[in-house]
Write a protein that binds this DNA or RNA. Sequence first.
RNA 1: GCCCGGGUGGCGGAAUGGUAUACGCGCAACACUUAAAAUGUUGUGAGCGCAAGCUCAUGUGGGUUCGACUCCCACCUCGGGCACCA
Length: 807
Amino acid sequence: MKYNFKTIEKKWRETWKKSKIYEPKLGNPKKKLYHLVMFPYPSGDLHIGHWYNFVPSDAYARMKRMQGYDVLSPFGYDAFGLPAENAAIKRGIHPKIWTMKNIKTMTKQVEATGNSYAWNQMVITCLPEYYKWNQWIFLQLYKKGLAYKTKAPANWCPSCKTVLANEQVVEGKCERCDTVVVKKDIEQWLFKITKFADRLLKDLKDLDWPEKTKLMQRNWIGESKGAELEFGIVDSEEKIKVFTTRPDTLFGVTYAVLAPEHALVEGLKEKITNWKEVEKYREKSKNRSEQDRLDETKEKTGVELKGVRAVNPANQERISIWIADYVLATYGTGAIMAVPAHDERDFEFAKKFDLPVKQVIIEEEVSNNKSALLESPFLESGVITNSTKFNGTQSEEAKQAITKFVGGKFVTRYRLRDWLISRQRYWGTPIPIVYCKECGMLPVLEKELPIALPPLKDFKPAEDGRSPLARNKKFLKTKCPQCSGPAERETDTMDTFVDSSWYFLRYLDPKNSKKAFDKEKAKKWLPVDMYVGGAEHTVLHLLYARFFTKFFFDEGMIEFEEPFTALRHQGTILGPDGQKMSKSKGNVVDPDGLVAEFGADTVRLYLCFMSEYSQGGPWNPKGILGVARFLERIWKAKEKVGKKDSNEITPLLHKTIKKVTDDIQNFKFNTAVSSLMILLNELEKQESIGKDTFETFLKLLAPFAPFMTEELWYELGNTKLTSTKLGGSIHIAKWPSYNPKFLEEGEFDLVIQVNGKVRSKIKAEKGITEDEAKNLALADEKVKTALGGKSVKKVIYIKDRLLSLVV
RNA sequence: GCCCGGGUGGCGGAAUGGUAUACGCGCAACACUUAAAAUGUUGUGAGCGCAAGCUCAUGUGGGUUCGACUCCCACCUCGGGCACCA
């Protein structure tokens, strides 16, 4: 009988759902395993990339379940975001209706995969029952001073008169009207993630994450150790504070540079003789568009602050002060000491404006150091020169000494910026803040939560840069929580990354209306043991989730500091042409069509088999035929199942158990499947297949092909099925274990090398000694020929593998 | 520019110091068939040879080693990330 996947898959999908075998009892797990896939955005269509994220990792979850773990594998939707607004504008459907409809469709599609999700734990972030807690968390951060409001630049389209999300800026231009986008300063909310920079960096080292991902997070946090030094200003009480990683070059400073926005510029206004010019430059750099920045040829610009001079604290030398936009206001102190001889950017700037270059570090100490004109800056460390009493010391060692000499201090700086969470958008979580004319800015009372999104028809931000929520008077007008006088609500909504920063906690208790999450339940199930998702979320999502977790820990709300103990990324599946899939290229692989043609098991198996998981690669439409044949052959092999087990197959069976177990554990799904294929190839050569052997084979295959294995398991009389109950399912059967004894017995091909070249292979018993192997080799005709009568000088023996003879 | 990660048959890939090319796709021949499809069997890196076999081959060039896809050095190339971070 041919394998009829359609009826079989339908039958088991329904049976599993009814019997709830994938819904763990959350109460008291003996051996918990929290397996999590990154929840998708409900775009309305589950593409093959989703399958690739969800299916192989489900194989991992399934094996763990069979190994006796209480596996929690939940699923949900990251349901706020811009596409819903765009769809609403385009088709006139409300974002919520569009989103919920998509969720319904996608859930059906996800169910088709046969994945073992605990559907009863579903989380949907755009529902008030979820975003209420975003607001609550915001209030906790606010209370601790970790949520604050400040002027921050937003993307502004001067033509549409609207704020744009980053995704709406395409190559520095507005995606709608192609106008060059500028930065506009507006009051926005930020989370103080920088306060956690050191811990976010330090705690990376213990995580079982891809090294590359950890490295990217490290670079993003960007730790740099250096000194903070103060430069005096002639005839002024003001000081310029600078941050430098090279205090050893202090004697080589020939000018100082402030960021154009630096507050001191304003403070020195009275003294500056070319104020007009200065102001013009400041204005220009402020209005600098994204486009400009992208086009920039790296040519340095700047203006000298004429009439003011700074004093080098090391040698009291007077130096010029400049403003230039190559110095960033947002990093360090917003001011630098310029050492053109030892810094590339300073060198370039000095050359353009004809500023002095003074070398203070040389490669080696020479008796007569005439400093020749430098053609390029000398960036390495070396020996100090031209620096009075520090001459002749090693520059690395002089760092501390020189810093101390001028009364500076050593500090650690981070590149990481605070997290801007304000969005001037409709489809997100409203920020729970009100503004009262009398009492000022106040947080919403916790008992007032959730502040629900009001219905709205027009989703474009207002011309003053405010969110569309500002147009809804019913939403906007409220009472002051303090004086009950008239007040206005904050109209910005939160970045959707807020939603995804703690959803893994909510899964335990998605309906809890009293708390965001329960400490006791969290203690039992978290942290997440295995997190699987795309590498594109390497930096932002993972960093934000770690930040939230550390905050919750500090607040005593949970007892762990890192949310994701282990992390794996799936690769990207490309179209058959090797290009990224896109509708316009017409190279999109449609999973629904594949399921209809081949069945879910086949699609699952091929996704696991086609490539190394983290690598991905092009989809080969013919390749899937291989695994389809494999399943058909298993279906046929069932007919050969008899009582007698052949001993011959036992060593291979045990080898396969070990290989499949190890490979799934290590996310090497492709080689796990290939070892099952090898086993089947051998089983087919047998007259009859033992029932035990076949059952073991089915169990090993069950994580990959849950439907067919369940059906065969049932036909072999293991699964008990009544109209409402499922007993003895293969998916909760005990995972096979191997006997190491079988791996050490039997025959192997002893490879004989002479002078490093393979000259012969001899069948031998496993476990033979070096002498036995040598005797076998020396008796072999081919080896004799290769040796040519010469005497063996050296013998290398690798047990159960190879003998290397050197003559 | 800087930092990572790759480059293996016609194709997807396997092998992390020990038989290079497992497994699969494709291709070829044969069997079954009136025929085709499906299925099954066998073969399949390149070159030389009737053959046993020999030589060459994991981006390129060098090195370490009895032995290198694997380790080291230099270069070529593709992909990813960051990008004036002092």
